Simulated assay, not measured.
Amino acid sequence: MARHLRAFLGADDATLARRLTAAGTVQAVLDAIRTRLSEPARDALVAELTAATGGLLEEDLDSILLSGLLGYHGLVDAARQTAAEQDMTNLVTLDHHLVRVTSEPVVEVLVDRQQAYELRLALTVTFTVQGLAATVRAGRLVHVRIGRCSADVSLSWAGQALVRHSDLVDAPLVIKLGSGVPVHEITDPADDPALARGTARVPGPRVAQPGS
């Protein structure tokens, strides 16, 4: 099963463009611009919105899951314990756990470098984790193994889902972190501006000049 967020959602350019149009998102942006756009400019608008929205989905499910697991107190406690005892390894186990990560990415629509619209989206990723075993050593998370993990991912606008998909991620799901990641450094992808904000640049309408 694909573990890249965009591939998991099946959100290729054609699908995103179709959903953005069907949901009324494109029309909302056109209404905000107010000036009638030519057909090529409208096509450019759809293409830019699609590219900017797709760019917000450039993340792996593994990274999102790790960011959500940070909130589990068992891992934080294990990191504290093993940080004080460098030779200690702590195995944290969970039979069943829900991990939910939410963010509100924004696409800024610029017309001739002026902001015309802010497209506010909602991205929700919910993992159902069964049979988790996480290894923490010297305050660092070094290995995660999950017997079964499913994900429900939804990208929404104005309360309606643009794209949504639920499926098994991997069975088992194994995440190897090499020398490990300091637990306190695992952050929510929404904290990264590159993942939380995109920009769609649309050329403004061309006005015919007298004698042109």
Rank of each mutant, 00 (worst) to 15 (best):
E85M: 02
D13G: 08
A138C: 10
V101D: 00
V174N: 05
S212L: 11
T89D: 13
V142Y: 07
D152W: 04
S38F: 06
A44V: 05
A190C: 05
L195V: 14
V125I: 11
E118P: 05
L49P: 05
P172I: 03
A41M: 11
I175A: 03
A134F: 05
G68N: 04
A17T: 07
G180W: 00
A122Q: 11
R80G: 03
P189W: 03
T199W: 11
N90Q: 13
P203R: 09
D170E: 12
A32C: 05
H143K: 12
V136H: 05
A14P: 01
G24W: 09
R100W: 04
V153K: 01
V111P: 06
S150V: 08
V142H: 11
L91Y: 10
R164V: 06
H4K: 12
A22P: 01
P210Y: 02
A14M: 09
G10V: 06
A116T: 07
V26N: 02
R80M: 10
A196V: 09
Q115K: 15
T187L: 12
R36E: 13
L5P: 04
P105L: 08
L168N: 01
Q27C: 02
A200R: 12
S150I: 02
L94N: 15
P182K: 09
V183I: 15
R100H: 13
G74N: 13
D60V: 04
L110H: 15
R140H: 14
D87L: 08
H184K: 15
L168Y: 00
V144G: 04
Q130T: 12
T89W: 01
D60N: 13
T126C: 10
T53A: 03
G24D: 02
T89K: 12
L57Q: 11
S212W: 09
D77P: 00
G10Q: 02
G68M: 02
A171Y: 00
L49M: 07
A41K: 12
D43A: 15
E118I: 01
T199M: 12
A83Y: 00
S212G: 11
D77R: 11
G24V: 06
R140S: 14
G24P: 06
I186N: 10
D77Y: 02
S150R: 08
G198I: 07
E185H: 13
L5A: 03
P105G: 08
A14K: 14
G54P: 08
T102A: 10
M88Y: 09
E39Y: 08
A151G: 00
D13W: 00
V207E: 10
A47P: 05
L141M: 06
G139Y: 04
L37Q: 12
P172Y: 01
V181H: 09
T50W: 00
A23M: 02
P193S: 06
T53R: 02
A14Y: 04
R19Q: 14
D12A: 05
T15Q: 12
Q160D: 06
D43S: 14
P203L: 06
V92I: 07
